[in-house]
């Protein structure tokens, strides 16, 4: 088990390094002068020089890269070109709403899509199955911002059950928090629900064909025990895998959802940063989300070992 974890951890290190390299090269390999691109068309030569200087663009590429990595290892992700404040501090201020949104979406996903997927697999080709499949295709096809506006149109504008936009932190009380975060959470989870329920169904269908399911039935076990004790645990690994790889999709969704519902989170920050071409900020946010992705998938690898003894005893 320890050995397995260590191996996974070792694999994560080069991945993180490669992510840093990709992000680094992204700026340096863009055609033309990156400082010019960042500064925009109307920039004066002094402004461009200032940007070159603050990004250290005049040093050789390798030096730039090692300094940059070295600074980051010391917790220095650079300063914003616009506000001149450390980007890490700016991110810290905006991360709360995003975390809250992602958590709510995740919880909604699990409580909605697992039962749906299992129910669909149980009667393959039946009414529930076709319904779940249709809903999941719909979830893949309707953009989050459209779902967001439909939800706003129905539940906020028409029925007036929820406020149209805005965010209140949990510290303002649980009810105001939930009242404002429910609709964006639901919108954000839509594509995730589509993905996870589809995968749950597919994994369950596969597992239900296995010999040990036939054994369980031959022992006279109830359908509930067969489905949840014998089948779902074996279907867990592919389901967990899409939960992990789908996390990148979730982050993309966060950016859009926060724009639609005007939630002051990281997503808004990144869009603002892009519009202002605040490159250090963009870099830091990409690195942080990619790092989170790697950590989440590492945790999922750990959970494989918990669900499957064959991995645990490797």
């Amino acid at each position: 088990m320890l050995y397995y974890l260590l191996r996974r951890l070792l694999m994560a290190v080069p991945v993180m390094f490669l992510i840093a390299l990709i992000v680094f090269l992204l700026l340096r390999l863009t055609p033309g002068d990156p400082a010019q691109a960042i500064a925009g068309d109307q920039a004066s030569p002094e402004q461009i020089a200032a940007i070159r200087d603050s990004l250290g663009l005049d040093a050789p590429l390798t030096t730039q890269f090692t300094t940059w990595i070295g600074n980051m290892l010391h917790g220095d992700f650079g300063n914003s070109l616009i506000s001149q404040r450390p980007v890490l501090e700016m991110i810290g201020q905006r991360i709360g709403p995003t975390l809250a949104l992602a958590t709510v979406a995740m919880i909604l996903t699990v409580i909605i899509s697992l039962p749906l997927g299992v129910a669909a697999a149980r009667r393959h080709g039946g009414l529930v199955d076709r319904l779940v499949m249709s809903l999941s295709v719909l979830g893949f096809s309707v953009p989050i911002f459209v779902i967001g506006y439909v939800l706003i149109g129905i539940f906020a504008v028409h029925l007036k059950w929820f406020p149209v936009q805005g965010y209140k932190p949990l510290s303002d009380g649980i009810w105001p928090f939930l009242h404002r975060i429910f609709l964006p959470g639901l919108a954000l989870s839509s594509i995730y629900i589509a993905l996870v329920s589809r995968m749950t169904r597919a994994a369950m269908l596969e597992v239900l064909r296995e010999d040990y399911i036939r054994t369980a039935r031959a022992k006279g076990l109830s359908e509930r025990v067969v489905l949840f004790r014998h089948a779902l645990r074996n279907a867990a690994i592919p389901i967990l895998t899409v939960v992990g790889t789908g996390f990148a999709m979730m982050i993309s969704g966060v950016v859009v959802t926060e724009t639609v519902f005007n939630v002051p989170g990281l997503g808004r920050l990144v869009v603002d940063a892009v519009l202002a071409r605040d490159y250090p900020l963009i870099q830091a946010i990409i690195l942080l989300t990619a790092g989170t992705y790697v950590v989440i998938n590492l945790l999922i690898d750990v959970s494989y070992a918990l669900t499957d003894p064959r991995i645990r005893y490797q």
Binding site: Y212, A218, K219, R233, R310
Partner: peptide
Amino acid sequence: TKTLRGSDMAMIFQEPMTALNPVL
């Protein structure tokens, strides 16, 4: 028949490798 299976009639299968649930 669910009651009968396992108590009055029982079955063993070809593949012992796959007939037992690997995670339990």
